[in-house]
Simulated scan of single mutants.
Amino acid sequence: MKQAALDKTPKKLKNPSDIQVRFRTGLVYTVVTVVCVLAGNIPMLLMLMAVAGICAGEFFYMLRSDAKLPNEMLGIVAAVLYPPSVYFYGLTGAFLVNLALLLALLVWYVFWTRARIPDVGVSFFGAAYTGLLLCGLVVIRQSLGNPWGGVLVLLIFLSVWANDSFAYLVGCRFGKHKLAPRTSPNKSWEGFLAGLVGSMAFWCVMTLVPGVTMGIPMALLFGLICGLMSVLGDLAESRIKRNSGFKDSGTIMPGHGGLLDRCDSLFLAAVTSAILLVAGGCIPYVIM
C-alpha cells in the first residue's frame, strides 16, 4: 500500500526543489509563530523560550568549532530563562538572570582550569544574544495586552520577514552591487534598500493598532532603524558562521538551515523595537 501511494504521488512532491522545501519549512515556521503570538502571553512566552534555547544551542555548537569552549549548559539555561524572567519581574528579572549567569560562569572559570576568559565571555554573550534580546517582544506584548499586544508583536515579526524577503527577492533579480562581500557575498545594496522599504511599510501599518501613539513620519524612521538592525543581526550571524567554518547554523529547518539562521535578523530588531516604542511614548511600559 505504501508503494502504491508513493507511485501515485506527483513527482514534484516526491522530489521537491530547494525553493519548494524552503517555502514549506517557512510556511510551517510562520504558522506556528502567528498562532503562538496571537494565542496569548503564555503561548508566546513558551515559543520564545524554545527559540532562545534552540538558537543558543546552535550558537555554542558553532563556537566550539572555532576553538572556543563555552559552557553550553549554563548558556542555554540562561537564554531560556530570560523571557520568563522579564515577563514575571520586568527588568529586575533580566538583571537577576544576568547576575546568576555571571556568578555561575565565574565559579566555573575558577574551578575548571581549562576554561579561559574568552570562554566566559562567549558563554555570557551567547545567552544574552539569543535570549535577552528576545525579551523586547515580551515588553511589547505586555504593553497593550490582548489582543492588540499580540497584533503589534506580529507586525514586528512581519517587518523583519518583509525585510528578509524583499532583500532576497530583489537581490536575486536585480542585485549587482555587493553589500558585504567578505561577510555575506550574496547580499546586495539593491536588496538591502528593498528590505528597508519592506520594514518601513509594516511599521506604517502599526500606526493603525489601537493603543499605539505613532505618526507616519515616526513610523518611517523607526522602521528604517529596525530594518538596519535586522540587517546588522543577519550580517553578524553570517560573520560568526564564516569564522567557524559553517554554511548553516543547523539542520532543524530544511531549506533554511538552523533556527538561528531564520531568527538572526529578529534579535536586534526585537530589542530595538521595544526601546523605540517605549522611549518614543508610542506604547506604555507595563511592569508585571
Score class of each variant (00 low, 15 high):
R114T: 12
A115H: 06
R116Q: 11
I117N: 11
I117F: 07
G121D: 08
G121T: 06
V122D: 09
S123F: 12
F124P: 01
A128G: 10
A128W: 09
A128E: 11
Y129E: 14
T130V: 14
T130R: 14
L133P: 02
L133T: 13
L134F: 07
L134K: 14
C135W: 04
G136V: 00
G136H: 01
L137H: 05
V138F: 13
V138T: 11
V138I: 14
R141G: 02
Q142W: 08
S143N: 05
S143G: 09
S143H: 07
G145E: 01
N146D: 11
N146S: 11
N146G: 14
P147M: 11
W148A: 10
W148I: 03
G149R: 07
G149L: 01
G149F: 04
G150V: 06
V151W: 00
L154A: 10
L155T: 05
F157W: 10
L158G: 01
L158H: 00
N163E: 12
N163D: 15
D164W: 02
S165D: 00
F166I: 05
F166L: 13
F166S: 03
F166P: 00
A167E: 11
A167W: 08
A167I: 09
L169W: 04
V170I: 08
V170G: 15
G171M: 08
C172K: 14
C172G: 09
F174E: 09
F174V: 07
F174D: 12
F174Q: 08
F174L: 11
G175C: 10
G175P: 09
G175I: 12
H177T: 13
K178V: 06
K178A: 15
K178R: 11
L179N: 04
A180V: 03
P181C: 15
P181Y: 07
P181H: 10
R182S: 12
R182G: 14
T183D: 10
P185F: 13
N186I: 08
S188H: 06
W189D: 10
G191V: 07
G191E: 15
F192S: 09
F192M: 06
F192Q: 05
L193E: 02
A194R: 04
A194V: 06
G195Y: 00
L196I: 02
V197C: 00
G198H: 05
G198E: 01
S199L: 06
S199W: 00
S199A: 12
S199V: 01
F202R: 14
F202Y: 13
F202W: 08
F202D: 11
W203R: 02
V205D: 06
V205Q: 04
M206Q: 12
M206H: 12
M206E: 03
M206T: 15
T207Y: 08
L208M: 12
L208F: 02
